[in-house]
Each structure stands twice: as C-alpha cells, then as structure tokens.
Design a protein around this nucleic acid. Structure first.
Lengths: 315, 315
DNA sequence: TAGTCCTACGTTACCGGTAACTCAACTCCG
DNA sequence: CGGAGTTGAGTTACCGGTAACGTAGGACTA
C-alpha cells in the first residue's frame, strides 16, 4: 500500500520510505499493471477511440494527426477505428472499444445506428462527433457545415457565369459530408437557375487517379458540362492532369473546383479554386474538448471551425 | 460461473440454461468488462501498439492502413503511436503501451534506445520491426533494404551518364531509412566515379512543397547539379513543379528521381523515375506475422518485401 | 446392484492494484 | 502534562471476471 502511494505520488509517506520503494522498483524492473488500476478503482483507461472512415482519404490523416498530437501531450493514446464508411462496422467497433473502458471517443460523422447511439448514451463516456456540424450532438461536436460550403461554391460558380454543372465524388464519403456538399451545390445551382447536368459517384477513394478517370467518364457521357466540382483537391488535381493530357484548356474549355485545400495545391502553377477547411484544427479542437470533458471540466458542446472559399484561376 | 461459460461458449451447460442466460444479457443490456477478463487470467488485451514516425508522411499512412485492415479482421485494435522521429518519444510510448498489456507491437524502424530494447525483450510480447530490413531483429522484421534501393538508384543514374548528383530529403526520416537510401546512393555515386556535390536535409515533412523549395535551395547553392534524388515521390513532384515554373527542362536541364511510387505519380503526363515499394504490403505482412505469433503459431522472422526501380522519363 | 463415468452446475480463491479504514508515534498547544 | 491533531504506515475488502476444483444425479457397465 505504501509502495502504491509512493508510485502515485499521493503523499503520506516519508522521504526515507520513498527512496526505499524506488530502489526496489529499480531492482525488480517493476512496471505497474495499468489494467489492474483500471479494474480496481473502476476508472477508465487512457485510451481514446477515434473512428475515421479510412486512411486512403488524405483529409482524414490530417484530422487524425491533429487528434493524436493533442492526445499524446496529455498522456492519452489513440485507438484507431477504420469504419470503411459502414455504419454497421462502426457499431461493432464502438461495442468492442467500449468494452475496453476508453476515456473517450471521437467519431467521424453524425450518423450512427440506433443501437450505437444507445450504447454511447448509456456508457456515458465523453464523445465528440467530428467533421459534419451537428447542432444537437450526442455529447459534443466539432466540424463545419458541409452543405453550406457546397452551396457557397455553387453560388460562386454561378457568379462566374456557368450554366451547366458537373460533380464527381466517390462512395468514400465520411458520414455523407461530401454528399451534403453535393446537396448544397445542387441547391445553389437550382436556386440560381443553372443545371446540374451530371453527377458521378465513383466506387473508389477520393484520390488523384479517380479524379483523372472520373473526369474522363463525366466528359464522355456529357461533353457540354462547363464546370466540375470535385469531392476534394486531389481529385481536382487529377482532373487538371487529365485536361492537360487531353489539351482541354482550364478554365477556357472547362472549370475545375476542388475542396479541402490539400498539400498538392501549394505546388501548382495556378491557384486551384477550392474551399479551405482546417483539418488539423478540427482534430486538435476535438481532442482538446474531449480532454476537457474527461478531466471533468466544461467544454463547448458545438464548435464550428468554418470554411473559406478560395477563388482560384481554374474557373 | 455458468453465465461466464455460456458467454465464452466454452461448453458445459445445457441449452435451457444458455437461453436463460442470453435472456438476462439482453434484459440487462450487459456488456462484458474485458478489462476484468484480462486481469483475471493474466491474458493480454487485443490491442496492438503500432508506432509510426508521423502521419504527415504519406508513405506511412499506407503502411498503417495495411496494418489496421488486417488487425481488424482478426479482432484486434490498433493503438497509434506517433514518435515524431525521436527515440526518446518511442521509449516513453513503448513503456506506456506495455503497461496496458498489448497483444503485440509493431515498430517502425530498427533503432531503439537500450532501455526500450530491454523493455521489449523482458515483456516477451510478439513484436515486428518494419520498414528497414534488419537481419537480426528483436523478434520479427518486415521491410526492404533501403541502402540497396539507394545504391541501385545511384547506379541507374550513373548509367544514364550523370556526373554531378544532388539529394534532397527531410529530417522526417523513419528510423533513418531515408538516410540509408542516401548512403546507398552516395556509395554508388562514389563507386561509379561521380560526385555527390550537394545534399540537403530540410526540417520539414517530405511533401510536395518541401520538394518545391528544396529544389530551389539546392539549385541556387549549386547550379551545376545534373540530377536530384528525392526522399520520396511527393517531393520529386514538388521539384517537377518548381522546374516547370522556372522553365527548367526535365530531363534536359536536370534529372529528377523520387522514391516510393506514391499516388500522385499515376496522374502525371510522364513516368517519374522512382523506386516502387509496396507500403500496403509491408503493413499487411507485418500484421499477418504478428497475428501468427500472437496465436502461438510460427512466423517468418525476417521478411524482405523487396523493391523495384522504375526507370521513368524524368532522367 | 454396486461401482464408475459423465454432465451440468456451484464454490472458492485469486489476479494487482486502491479506497477506506485503523493505528502507533509524534507534535503541538493551552 | 494531558488531550487533540497530524503524520506515516499497515490492514481489509473489493473491483468482475475465470481457473481449479467440488458435487449431485443420471447413464452406463461389469
């Protein structure tokens, strides 16, 4: 018991005893069994479950990095969950992770199975839903309004005089955030009297090459599209490469817009039209708020990190 | 006790009892406490600690994805550790993770602090060191020979007639694997009578933009360099963009070579000279071998996944 | 029919910490 | 100098599972 007190620096022991205990620790190469600690006092582990749709989508690696950096600096560990965009997978993962008594959870997306919601509520664990803003989260929420960002992009493109619009995305869509963007975009186009003449949902990750062949597909099925909004910047860059290869002039023949301001954008010879979203910041804020709740402090329930439309030279 | 047996499907109970137990489980919304299980029978958790240098380096997100996919399909969970390329950070992380009784560990890199090695050995936990091949691993190893890949690139570039060589990398270097490549490259250049006239180590992540400004720095300090080998493809693409912006012809004025065959390469209008390494495969193999050891089976101690030099049009 | 085995279920102790309590010795004060 | 408070250390019970063992009663066998 005295050794336990010394190791927890809880006080109630003399310096002489402390030295003796530490000497034994050293001699035995003693490593505490944290499992026993959690078990004993019905505490939680220092694990934080973090579910993201997948790592193939560059956007989420930035979010994850923001989360992990913050968690580590407060002595917590990230337990990864890749849900592959399937709510059923998420539910299974939540159940597993909860059985390990995590300190908290961070979930990407606001949609969950009813049973998952029930598990989360009854577990009473601090929880942050990230990515898509949710004004009534289960517990807390950090994100941005994807619908609005799509709507703003639609209005911006309309203001540039475009009439026939296209969209290319993938099924790798975090909790339908990209679909929200598409919906906002479609609404703006409709409100402004334009026509969303073609939209494509590829069964692929939203990377460079899907942007490349997605553009090819879209243009071959509807050559009259004047501007294409992509799920993210990497896809848009793939599109730009396709157009260059095909001698299609940008923005002369076609306009290209991306989303997310990914690293590739920084080395292009022109400014890509895109929406800037601070992915790292979402991760950091989510982890910060979670840590506040974990340590019993108050945290803001809903955090809107916002977005910024970047008018570029590709439209 | 009977309930415990039913839930573990261990046998030794009647169908009638099983139904009764399951009904109670349902009624109470009972979730087993896995912490108690681990504690009780001195078993291990289903966590696998995975340390990678950082997520900003795209290469490792692929490795991580390979690992996690495999682990999840065998009911294990990934506990992330970003060591930020610091052995001291790794040691701290190892100590923390070990105290949670993980089923196994996967570490990026072969260099560890002496204390870390001692902790790992005495914990007697299945362990895979990945990335750089190590013929005498602590336990197991999956990777490729980075020195050789650099050497081969050096020889290949020599065979193309280059005399003055450059290198641009970053300090974000997984366990000095990139440094091994540089050493191999330098050796080849020396052996072949060329001159490694300038090498740069940027304090940044090995991404597009560092490739861009790294090229600028290198060329301004030594304009006579004829070919540059980059830490990875993303940096090389940044370099290509820099050269296009400056109207420097590739491969006419300068040769560019990357490493790793990253996704961006698939949409470029020319084939980038690079080394192909199957990152996803490294992750999968590492997880596979680890799971074998965890379940008590034999696993290959050293796995060389190899590499393949891709002669492109940029040299 | 007695002895043996098997099945289904129950009992006990234990894993390694810690909360809550007890207690001796020492300090401090009016 | 006696009673109250403080300090450092020890004792006990408990967290929620499971290993190991115990046992009643039915089936099977010699």
């Amino acid at each position: 018991m005295t050794a336990s007190r010394v190791l927890r620096e809880e006080g109630g022991y003399s310096e002489k005893t402390r030295v003796k205990v530490m000497a034994e620790v050293e001699r035995l190469g003693y490593l505490p069994n944290r499992i026993a600690t959690v078990f004993a006092s019905d505490k939680r582990t220092t694990f934080v479950g973090v579910s993201i749709p997948d790592l193939g989508n560059e956007v989420f690696t930035h979010v994850l990095e923001g989360i992990d950096r913050k968690l580590v600096s407060f002595n917590h560990q990230t337990v990864l969950g890749m849900t592959q965009h399937a709510l059923a997978e998420e539910e299974t993962w939540i159940e597993t992770v909860l059985s390990w008594k995590p300190a908290g959870l961070i979930l990407t997306g606001r949609a969950h199975t009813p049973r998952a919601v029930q598990l989360l509520q009854s577990s009473n664990i601090p929880l942050v839903e990230i990515w898509d803003l949710n004004s009534s989260p289960i517990d807390m929420c950090v994100g941005l309004n994807h619908f609005d960002s799509g709507y703003d992009m639609g209005r911006f493109l309309l203001s540039k005089g475009y009439k026939r619009f296209g969209y290319v995305g993938t099924s790798h869509d975090a909790a339908n955030a990209a679909t929200s963007r598409l919906n906002g975009y479609a609404k703006a186009v409709e409100d402004g009297g334009g026509k969303l003449s073609k939209q494509l949902c590829l069964n692929d990750i939203p990377g460079f090459y899907p942007g490349f062949y997605g553009t090819e597909q879209l243009l071959s099925s509807d050559p009259n599209v004047e501007v294409i909004f992509f799920q993210n910047d990497n896809m848009a860059v793939g599109a730009v490469q396709f157009c260059e290869a095909q001698k299609i002039s940008i923005p002369g023949d076609i306009g290209i817009a991306g989303w997310g301001e990914l690293p590739i954008a920084s080395v292009l010879p022109y400014r890509l039209t895109t929406v800037q979203a601070n992915h790292l910041r979402i991760g950091q804020l989510a982890a910060e708020n979670l840590l506040l709740k974990i340590s019993g402090d108050d945290a803001q329930d809903v955090c809107d990190v916002g977005f910024r439309l970047v008018p570029g030279e590709t439209v």
